[in-house]
Amino acid sequence: MKAIVFDTFGGTEVLHEAEVEVPQPGPGQVRVQVKAVGVNPVDGKIRAGGMEAIFPTTLPAVPGGEIAGVVDAVGAGVDHLKVGDEVLGWSDTGAYAQYALSPATALAPKPAGLDWTHAAALPVASDGAERVLDLLGVTAGETLLIHGASGALGTIAVQLAVARGARVLGTAGPDNQSYVASLGATPLVYGDNLVERVRALAPEGVDAVFDAAGKGALEDSLTLRGGTDRIVTTADFRAAELGVVFAEGPQRRSGTRLAELARLAADGTLVTTISAVHPLAEAARAQQASDGGHNRGKIVLTVDSTVA
């Protein structure tokens, strides 16, 4: 099968197409014929070697862990999924490929009203957003500041926080202010005088900060909170030296919860936004765009799963 592989750590130039063995499902696993793949900032960090302390990588490696596709084969002990089922979720064997293996418990049924690209945009962002909101203990009536509110993670985090009854202030670039407002947040442009501008909107203070941007937002966050309490970042590697919780780590990967969110996405209650779609062969270009940031929503790869 065709897959995108990297044999050494580095920039996007290390990504290349290769022929690899079609994986075989073991007990509790299913094989998915991949239709679409979510491209996430962590993919680029792993490729660059920056996540070895958290996600040790055996080279050569196939990047990615977020898929939507069709169940192609079922391992022993799997009784709730069958060949032909359309699913979305997480992959254990690398997602940038024509076929991938997934734990059956990490997959959810794809609703008919959710297309492949939007299905692939949901698992990682929804899981990450809920993990951070739970770490922060966000509840109704609180004010939450989200840095990077227009990105794939921020898009979902804003909506889930609003659904909890929180007031959300969301930072984003000038071109994404209306978009952030459409998600239910009060938008702000990141950058100079952010502390003063946040305080003008929330004179009573912010109760928690979710940094999904990682672009120097932690210092302002510490000032706004008066310390490190209830600040979580998924993107700033200086977190430890600043005493802030860094939340990038093992995911919950609950197919049951993902199924609930997929139904909300299918009926339009939960918005998933696609910033760009590329064929699998353009994985390097997609990761380059992801590495650069400033994307509105998720970048997705589409996969032709026909094996010659």
Rank of each mutant, 00 (worst) to 15 (best):
G292F: 00
G268A: 00
L261K: 07
A286T: 10
A276L: 04
I274H: 07
A262D: 10
T256H: 11
H294G: 03
E282G: 00
T272P: 12
Q287M: 11
R285S: 08
R257P: 03
V300I: 15
S275V: 08
D291S: 06
H278N: 07
A276W: 04
H278F: 15
L280E: 02
A265V: 07
A281N: 08
G292M: 09
G297D: 12
T273L: 04
G268M: 03
S290N: 06
T256P: 00
K298W: 04
V300A: 01
G268N: 10
L280I: 01
A286E: 08
L280P: 01
E260S: 13
T272R: 09
R296W: 05
P279A: 03
G292W: 05
G292T: 08
A284H: 03
Q288E: 15
A289V: 12
N295T: 12
G297R: 07
L258P: 10
A283S: 15
G292E: 14
L261H: 13
H278T: 02
G268V: 04
E282S: 14
L301R: 01
G297Y: 09
K298P: 09
S254L: 08
A276I: 03
G293M: 07
A276M: 00
Q287N: 15
G292Q: 15
I299P: 06
G293Y: 05
A265K: 01
R263Y: 00
S275I: 04
D267Q: 13
Q288P: 06
A283E: 05
G255L: 02
R285W: 00
E260Q: 14
N295E: 14
A265F: 06
L258N: 06
L258D: 06
A265G: 08
K298E: 08
L264I: 00
A289R: 14
S254G: 13
I299H: 00
L264H: 08
L258G: 04
I274Y: 08
G292V: 04
A286R: 04
L264P: 01
L270F: 09
E282M: 04
Q288Y: 01
T272Y: 09
A265N: 04
A281C: 01
K298I: 08
V300N: 03
V271H: 13
S275Y: 09
A262I: 10
R285Q: 13
T272S: 14
A284T: 08
A276H: 15
L301I: 05
I299V: 15
V277Q: 04
A283N: 11
L258W: 06
R296T: 11
L261W: 12
A266K: 08
L258V: 09
T273K: 14
A283R: 04
V271P: 03
A283P: 13
L258Q: 06
R257F: 11
Q287S: 03
L301H: 01
R257L: 14
G268K: 03
D267H: 11
A284S: 15
G292C: 02
Q287F: 02
A262P: 13
G268Q: 05
I299L: 15
I299Q: 02
N295G: 02
P279T: 02
Q287G: 02
A266L: 10
A284D: 12
I274P: 11
S254R: 10
